[in-house]
Design a protein around this nucleic acid. Structure first.
Lengths: 203, 203
DNA sequence: GGAGTATACGAGTAATAACTCACATTCTGG
DNA sequence: CCAGAATGTGAGTTATTACTCGTATACTCC
């Protein structure tokens, strides 16, 4: 992952149906490898093989393995953001507690789909030179939360949003790594942390 | 990092002073590489070179690069645990708020010494087949917190300790990655999250 | 149905990194 | 000050992985 042997951005957009399927297969195979064996096990030869395509085809669409990681991260981010927006669309009509619960549900649902993958991508983000667009997505996810908070006159909404994202993420990681699978109990506890934090920051 | 090409445990313990210095130099060089360029950039040739020793010497003490990571993690854990114990030794004489603050101070001090390294080791832990002893250290760190909580009749002290460690870690990560360097403000906010969480879990 | 484009293939090359080993040097205890 | 143990060396071997390119097949649209 020493960065710049090749760029991060997709090399070429697939236009025909079979090539879109190939790209999807590469993403899925890579995700599985990451889940089973971690970052270090991901390599282009293996990803191609497991995706059922040739290395040559892989390099048609991804200039490097970092590009695969960046693509996976981008996709995940888009999904999460869309879900959060959907769920908080009518937030002005709801109590803070309800909005928080909905947002947490959305976040946890995404996380629990593929917890190991989430953690790996989270770490990978730190050293991937992300494109503008993916960085923007991260900011917008925080922004959704900040908007809800600002609307309720909570001071330092941006900072609070960052804290909330961080604490939720940390608690999900800890719980999932400990092998705990009771999602609804976890939601309850994260809600306690978030609302308890807001209580004290306001008081 | 596909795991088992060689074992994880130190191959041989250094006994003379110069070899202990070599081992220290290898740890320090590896830590720097991890901080500068991430997990993927760590390799035995580079670590040896930057430590000013030969690869042969490195392999005298570390059977693989995973062993270096495991050793770094073990050291960090030991330091943190010792510090937490020192700081919470007289916890029965103190208010919950004071103990929490002291423990957070200890944790944050450690984290801020080398935040990037901390995050890298945290991720690496997930796929390193850790020795009994290092896993034990993690449990004991949680145990220190659980002890304080149980002493105050907080239900589910072990679970709460895990949540608290998780939320603190997540908030430190988020803050540090955002480039925020105001440690005392961060402590205040983590305290709000922890105490707010406990308020709500008790109520 | 044929020209042009998109897609696919995978053996092969180059680079990188893990790891060994035969030999040299330094320490330590008696 | 000597024997044996500990430590150090780095060129060299082997394994792994990134990445290319010549060639073949499948679409698409006129």
């Amino acid at each position: 992952m020493s960065t710049d042997r090749a760029a991060i951005h997709p090399r070429k957009m697939p236009v025909q149906r079979r090539s879109m399927a190939a790209v999807d297969a590469i993403y899925e195979a890579s995700a599985r490898i990451l889940e089973e064996s971690g970052l270090a096990a991901l390599n282009t030869n293996l990803a191609a093989e497991r995706a059922g395509v040739s290395v040559g085809s892989l390099y048609q669409y991804f200039p490097s393995k970092e590009a695969i990681l960046a693509g996976l991260l981008h996709r995940k981010r888009q999904e999460l953001l869309a879900d959060m927006r959907r769920v908080a669309a009518d937030h002005r009509a709801l109590s803070l507690e309800t909005v928080v619960e909905r947002l947490l549900n959305a976040a946890l649902r995404h996380y629990l789909e593929r917890p190991v993958l989430s953690r790996t991508l989270e770490y990978a983000e730190a050293y991937l030179p992300l494109d503008q667009e993916t960085a923007q997505l991260k900011a917008e996810i925080g922004g959704e939360i900040a908007k809800v908070l600002a609307d309720r006159d909570i001071a330092n909404a941006t900072l609070a949003a960052r804290d909330i994202v961080g604490m939720a993420r940390g608690m999900m990681d800890a719980s999932s790594q400990a092998g705990d699978s009771d999602a609804s109990a976890l939601i309850t506890r994260i809600k306690a942390a978030v609302l308890g934090y807001l209580d004290r920051m306001r008081g």
